[in-house]
Amino acid sequence: MMQLTNDTYRILRLIYDEYQNRRKIGMSKTEAILFSYPSALQTEFLQGILEDDIADALTELSKNGLIKLYSDFGFLLKDSAIIYMENRLQNKVNLIFDIISKIVSMLH
Rank of each mutant, 00 (worst) to 15 (best):
G65N: 10
P38I: 06
L77E: 01
F75Y: 06
I33S: 01
R23S: 09
Q20P: 06
R22E: 03
E60Q: 12
G26Q: 07
V93W: 08
S28V: 15
E86T: 07
P38F: 03
E44W: 12
T59F: 11
E86H: 08
Q47N: 09
Y70K: 09
A81D: 04
K63R: 13
L69V: 05
L14Y: 05
R13A: 10
G74N: 05
A57E: 05
M85E: 02
F45S: 00
Q20R: 15
L34A: 04
M85I: 07
F75Q: 00
I25P: 08
Y84T: 08
A32H: 07
Q20D: 04
L66H: 06
Q47M: 09
N64K: 12
I49D: 00
L12E: 02
L61E: 01
L46P: 02
Y70W: 11
K92Q: 14
L58R: 02
K78Q: 12
G65T: 11
V93L: 13
L14A: 04
S36R: 12
I54L: 04
I54T: 05
L50M: 06
D72N: 11
G65K: 08
Y16I: 05
L89T: 15
G74C: 06
A57P: 11
I67H: 04
G74M: 03
I82Q: 02
N91T: 15
Y19L: 03
N94P: 04
M85Y: 03
M27I: 10
A55D: 03
D79K: 12
G48I: 10
G26F: 11
D17I: 15
L61N: 01
T8K: 04
L34E: 09
L89Q: 11
K29W: 09
L34V: 14
Y19C: 01
L58K: 02
E31D: 13
Q47L: 10
L12G: 01
R10N: 09
L61K: 03
D53V: 15
Y9T: 03
D53M: 13
Q47P: 07
T59W: 10
F73D: 00
N94G: 03
N91Q: 14
R13T: 12
N87P: 09
Y19N: 00
L77S: 01
Y84H: 08
R13L: 11
T59S: 07
T43R: 15
A81K: 07
Y16G: 00
T8C: 09
I49E: 00
S28M: 14
N87Q: 14
K63D: 10
Q47H: 11
N21F: 13
L34I: 15
I49V: 13
M27Y: 15
T43S: 09
L46W: 03
R22Q: 05
F45G: 00
I96E: 07
T43N: 12
D72E: 09
F45R: 02
I15K: 01
M27V: 09
S39I: 15
I49Y: 02
N64S: 07
E18Y: 06
D72P: 09
I82N: 00
L58F: 04
I96N: 03
V93Q: 06
F35P: 01
S62G: 07
L66T: 09
I15H: 02
A40V: 14
K78Y: 11
L89K: 14
N91P: 06
L69S: 01
L41Y: 02
Y19F: 14
T30N: 07
I82G: 00
E18P: 05
G48Q: 04
D17S: 13
F35V: 03
I83Q: 06
I83P: 02
Y9H: 05
L41K: 01
S28E: 14
